[in-house]
Amino acid sequence: MIRLSIPLRQALSRLSLPVMIAAAFGTMLLGKADAMLAERARTVLADLLSPFYAAFAEPARAVRGVVADLPELLAIREENARLREENERLRRWQAAALALESENALLRRQLAFIPEAAPSFQTARVVSDAGGVYARAVLIATPPEITVRRGQIALDERGFVGRVTEVGRRSARVLLATDMNSRIPVTLEGSRGRAMMVGTNGPRPRLQHWSEGIRPAEGERLVTSAEGVSFPAGLPVGVVRWSESGVPEVDMFARLGQLDLVRLFDFGLGGILPPEAIARPEPRPRR
């Protein structure tokens, strides 16, 4: 074994500290150089990849937009399907209506049918709820150039309102279908059964005396009947509503509580009201 002399060992110990310090500084400089090289490499790589990032950004943005709009697109799809189904149903109804129109024209030609003249009408303004002996009636203003006669039928833009009961020089009184003195012969459109619509002084008249074996159905449409030659057939009246107490009532098409204008039709049925159209006045207090 080689033994170092004491002076040599002392010299080496004195040299070891500077060497270690120099090695530490060298290591630090090498790490700094590595960090700068790594940063430059990242920068160069980012410059090279940026066009690809830009190219892929648009599809990714489009995909995110599609995902965000997916619920709305699904709703639009469902709406389109519903509209297509409704359109197809309307086409079928149109085809059926055209077929019926053609058939009716053929039958009328075979029967030498003479069409009725279109009824004349005049428009009058409702000025107030009328008093008098009727609980449900309105007063209309009739200028001198308008000829109004007792028995004319009043309608609004939705359906049957009532009939003229009194005529003055500048006004007339219309008895509403909801008055208890009103009697209107009606036809059930679905079953073609006949019934009498009777006013109750309430918002809904009642159905009475319907055809035997035919029960008014909930939601069934009602139109006027020509029975007794007191009303023209086919005027829209309302729909059947069964009350909680089991009584068939009529939900009127006409807005009787919001009348502003009424049209007075002359169907040429005569100027005297028959008993079944308007009963003897039985005044009741307003409710």
Rank of each mutant, 00 (worst) to 15 (best):
R204S: 04
M197Y: 03
V186H: 03
R169H: 02
A137P: 06
T27I: 09
E86G: 01
R92T: 06
G238A: 04
V19T: 05
R263A: 00
A277L: 11
T224M: 04
M1C: 08
F121M: 01
R136E: 07
G219Q: 00
F265L: 10
L207W: 06
V239F: 08
A57C: 14
D69L: 13
F267I: 06
D34V: 01
R125V: 10
G268S: 14
G168C: 00
A112E: 13
R149L: 14
E276D: 12
A95V: 06
N104Q: 10
A60V: 10
Q10V: 07
P285M: 06
P59C: 02
V198P: 00
G65C: 13
T187N: 04
A68V: 05
A177K: 03
A24T: 07
A172I: 01
A137Q: 08
F25I: 13
A62S: 06
L8I: 13
A112L: 14
R89H: 08
L269Y: 08
R91K: 09
I184Y: 10
L264G: 08
A41R: 15
R40C: 00
L15S: 13
R280P: 02
E157K: 09
A130R: 00
P143M: 01
A137S: 15
L74V: 14
E276G: 13
S245A: 12
A217H: 02
T187Q: 03
A130E: 07
L83W: 11
G31Y: 04
V239P: 00
G238I: 02
Q10M: 10
I272R: 12
P203R: 11
G26E: 10
V198I: 14
L155P: 03
F56I: 13
R169S: 11
A99H: 15
A54N: 13
S128A: 14
R163L: 11
G151C: 03
A124I: 07
